[in-house]
Design a protein around this nucleic acid. Structure first.
Lengths: 339, 339
DNA sequence: CTGAAAGCGCTTACAG
DNA sequence: CTGAAAGCGCTTACAG
């Protein structure tokens, strides 16, 4: 009289192995207070019937959730997918599951929607990549709800236990050094939107990197894009229309760099002969496009994993050091000395 | 003496509004058997305290899960992200959440891992895009577990209630017509891996489309790739090394098409003057690469939404018609008449 | 090392 | 229309 799969309960296992349900519970939860023989017997019955404890019942009794939320508004699919995998790498041997929540900061019900999501679900914790991680009001709300969280960000806005830091500025600095090394003097920068801290960090690092080579970044050659192909294209058009166009351009991400390629082609400007281009992110398109794009790479998946591990870590063991990641420059064929 | 947020229970609400917890439950569940005045009073208390029922407790009492799983091995990030959003579009006004589970069919613990995942979590349902959707053994296991599911696939392997069908072959047929219309005769096809049904469907549709124009697809010009950039590159090299290279090539996806671009560049072959290229999927790279790629577009997000809706639909209202999507051809600059 | 009782926060028949 | 009781499947003190 075996019940259909998935309907076996702790009571069935207890009855079948001739112990109380409490003992079964102890076996499930690896309590040391079970005689080896008893444990083996119970374990055998569990295996035989493919029993696994009902997750919701467990969650209820333990007053604990087994769900981790990832809340994001990042526009790059590659970024999202890599980070999801990284988080799952960290959760793999826990019994936590990953619930995803894409959103749009510009949208009407954005804040209310996430608040409801957080309050209702009572997650074990939440992981916040940029730019959601930069929304202090949102993070405050999450914290108030008693939900743990980890933010991934290019600036420190929180304590070490809640932060995975990316040194975005250093990546931009490396890009600046590379461009300066090649001998460029007239250098442009297409920034990301001002609402992303990363775009400030990348700007700052780039400006600093050039300064270290005695080059001043001309404000007239700094344009604001929106991290999209279209804005990269538009900004590049404006640069190419100038009387003295730049010989090199650093874009806030790869996506905008592809817009620069497009504009260059339409204007009959050759890459890298007439214009050198450096991107940021090392998305797959960087090595598919021609000439292949010199760019800055951040280990997204490992960042996601670090965020997951931080969330799982015992909060009482307060880490004093920030977990952080430094980007590296990947040199390809889109950069060359100026003519 | 208000308890901290998130800790308010149905008992608190009952006490504060002077009714039994059952009545509160009735209000929560929109039962008609509550006097409007009572309902309003209870509702007010709920709002005031920001109460929302504990999801796990509800799930336990109702013997129902509020989690939907998406299980996938698709290699394209854009595909994944779009489908996730589509599924979430469908779940938006339910109280279901989306749990993700990327996997790798070639990996050692693949099957066991998913089985454990399914048995433990007892999902409301699962959504399976290709190629996971083509794994009959996996689907059988899911069904046996009593878990509902919807598969998205290019061939019908199941009943209408469990299927979102994509007419992959029609998209390929359109690609064939376009190439034939341009006047090409020597035409190649770089297929996807044989383990994906979509690659068979696309091959079949392409072959059929050419036949309708009286053109026979030369088996010597059909190569098997792996849906990756690298395999597209390799296959293209073999084509370009032939004594009579083809003047047009249809690749099983965009990713492989970008490999063909690369190989063409290295061989000094111009697109589209020397070789016309048609891809499949209309991923963002298709319109970023130069010349922009002619390709076949499938509405991934809407497909995901349809899958979600099917999962939510009352299974007793057996649909007799298959939900299906037909791809469209997007003509860009990578195709032209042969010289 | 093991068991009987109470409880996690909700809902479902069953009375009234 | 409303309430008291029992139950969903698990765990946590508390005894023994």
């Amino acid at each position: 009289m075996i019940k259909p799969t998935g309907k076996v309960t702790i009571n069935d296992i207890a009855r079948l192995s001739g112990v109380s349900k409490k003992t079964v519970s102890r076996v499930i939860n690896d309590s040391p207070k079970v005689r080896p023989a008893t444990r083996a017997r119970v374990q055998a019955v569990i295996e035989e019937h493919g029993y696994s404890p009902h997750p919701e019942a467990r969650a209820l009794a333990l007053r604990k959730s087994y769900l981790v939320a990832m809340i994001y508004d990042n526009p790059s699919p590659q970024y999202i997918v890599n980070m999801q995998r990284g988080i799952l790498d960290a959760l793999e041997h826990s019994d936590l599951q990953l619930v995803i929540r894409p959103c749009d900061r510009g949208e009407e019900g954005y804040f209310g929607g996430i608040r409801k999501f957080i309050k209702q679900q009572r997650f074990f914790g939440a992981i916040l990549p940029p730019s959601v991680s930069e929304d202090q009001e949102l993070v405050d709300m999450i914290e108030e709800s008693g939900c743990r969280y980890v933010r991934i960000a290019s600036v420190i806005m929180d304590s070490p236990g809640n932060t995975v830091k990316t040194h975005d500025s250093e990546g931009a600095e490396k890009a600046a050094h590379h461009i300066a090394d090649l001998g460029h003097q007239r250098i442009a920068h297409i920034r990301g939107p001002l609402s992303f801290r990363s775009s400030h960090e990348r700007y700052r690092g780039f400006e600093l990197g050039l300064r270290e080579y005695g080059i001043r970044l001309d404000p007239g050659l700094v344009l604001e894009g929106g991290y999209t192909f279209e804005t990269g294209f538009e900004c590049a058009r404006r640069l190419f229309d100038m009387d003295h166009p730049p010989t090199a351009v650093f874009t806030g991400n790869d996506e905008m760099a592809t817009g620069v390629y497009q504009a260059a082609r339409q204007a009959g400007i050759r890459v890298p002969e007439d214009i050198s281009i450096v991107g940021y992110d090392d998305t797959p398109i960087a090595s598919r496009i021609w000439p292949r794009l010199t760019t800055v790479r951040l280990p997204i998946r490992r960042m996601g994993q670090a965020a997951g591990e931080l969330l799982l870590a015992d909060p009482t063991e307060t880490t004093q050091r920030y977990v952080s990641f430094t980007p590296e420059l990947v040199v390809r064929e889109s950069t060359a000395p100026p003519k």
